[in-house]
């Protein structure tokens, strides 16, 4: 177990910058989720750590050891692949024992360790099965056991749950988190699912076009998205684009009949984006009191959708935008309503 430090990592494929000057530190025993859309370079990053991709420049340190140019088989990283990558011609036991045999352990040690690993992933008694006789979730548990059994210094999970269905994905997510904490192993978790990243990670790193857009604790990154891309990627139900306006009070944007401040670098008639999340807006039928803490927007209910625990309404604003807003009661259509949103929950870019 060791701290992972990456400095200025760059990798280009022809014209494409897969990694562009990436800096990243993952403290010992922490789980960092690398989050990004496909093609953002997150797979290249994890493959560079494992040694399957040779970076153009930059450095990778595992503890005090510079592993940038070390051969992949000597790095002592353990990777779990999206496709599980279990060897179909070997039993579960042989799959897990493979790494231990390479380390020249005695048969007794191997047997003990494999048993430990299978109990760790909650699959005891499946030693003699072939991978094809297991479900997807079980296969990924075996892959996890195979990776953990060699006591790696860092665990690399490359979209480990993407091939599983939602229910198992949800369950395994928390099991991985628990295991990681219990073993106190430094972990990189690649995903394109923002909810997965936020729920599992100690820190989230958002990647786009090979560049780190934002990094930080899940709560920080969610409540203070640094730019439009981050906010959008972390799940914004409402993105409204309009033009900046000017009056005697200066530049502003208008939404729901309310004057909203715009960033300092905007000029008149520039495009401005407003982001608000459906579950962070409070919907009321009576006009709330003016306050420094929140904005009050006006609108008319025009459509509704029942979500089970709550209703989701489509609200149209006087400016002609439509917003999605959640509320726990059924309201009459076409009624005039007010939206209350905390000032730090309305993101303006």
């Amino acid at each position: 177990m060791a701290t992972l430090r990456i400095k200025g990592l760059t990798k280009t494929y022809g014209q494409l910058k897969a990694l562009d000057n990436v800096d990243l530190t993952v403290e010992e025993g922490k789980l960092a989720a690398i989050l990004g859309p496909s093609g953002s370079g997150k797979s290249t990053l994890v493959r560079a750590i494992a040694g399957f991709v040779v970076p153009d420049c930059g450095e990778i340190f595992l503890g005090e050891r510079d592993i940038t140019h070390e051969r992949p088989e000597h790095r002592n990283t353990a990777m779990v692949f999206q496709s599980y990558a279990l060897w179909p011609h070997m039993t579960v036991y042989q799959n897990i024992a493979f790494g231990l045999k390479l380390k020249k352990k005695t048969p007794e040690e191997i047997a003990k360790k494999v048993k430990w690993a299978l109990e760790l992933v909650d699959l005891p008694g499946l030693e003699e099965r072939l991978p094809t006789q297991l479900s997807g979730g079980q296969q990924q548990r075996v892959a996890l056991a195979r990776a953990l059994v060699v006591d790696p210094e860092i665990l690399l999970l490359d979209e480990p749950l993407s091939n599983l269905d939602a229910k198992i994905r949800y369950k395994l997510r928390f099991e991985i988190k628990k295991l990681q904490k219990r073993l106190n192993i430094t972990t990189i978790y690649i995903t394109h699912d923002q909810e997965e990243a936020l729920s599992i990670a100690d820190s989230v790193v958002l990647l786009k076009d090979g560049r780190v857009m934002q990094a930080g604790a899940p709560q920080d990154i969610y409540s203070r998205p640094g730019d439009l891309f981050v906010a959008e990627f972390l799940g914004a139900s409402n993105i409204v684009t309009g033009k900046t306006l000017r009056d005697e009070g200066g530049l502003y944007a208008s939404l729901g009949g309310t004057r909203l401040p715009v960033p300092d670098d905007k000029k008149e008639n520039d495009e401005v984006s407003l982001i608000l999340r459906a579950d962070e807006v409070e919907l009321t039928t009576e006009k709330p009191a003016e306050s420094e803490d929140y904005y009050v927007l006006k609108g008319i209910l025009c459509d509704q959708m029942y979500l089970g625990s709550r209703w989701r309404y489509e609200v149209s604003t006087p400016e002609g935008h439509s917003l999605l807003v959640d509320h726990d009661r059924n309201l009459a259509a076409h009624s005039e309503i007010y939206l209350c949103i905390s000032r730090d929950r309305l993101y303006i870019y």
Partner: peptide
């Protein structure tokens, strides 16, 4: 799949193995 070979390399196997 290449990943089957990579998984082995990752666990410490050289090319011959």
């Amino acid at each position: 799949p290449v990943s089957l070979e990579e998984a082995a390399v990752n666990l410490g196997a050289n090319r011959l193995k």
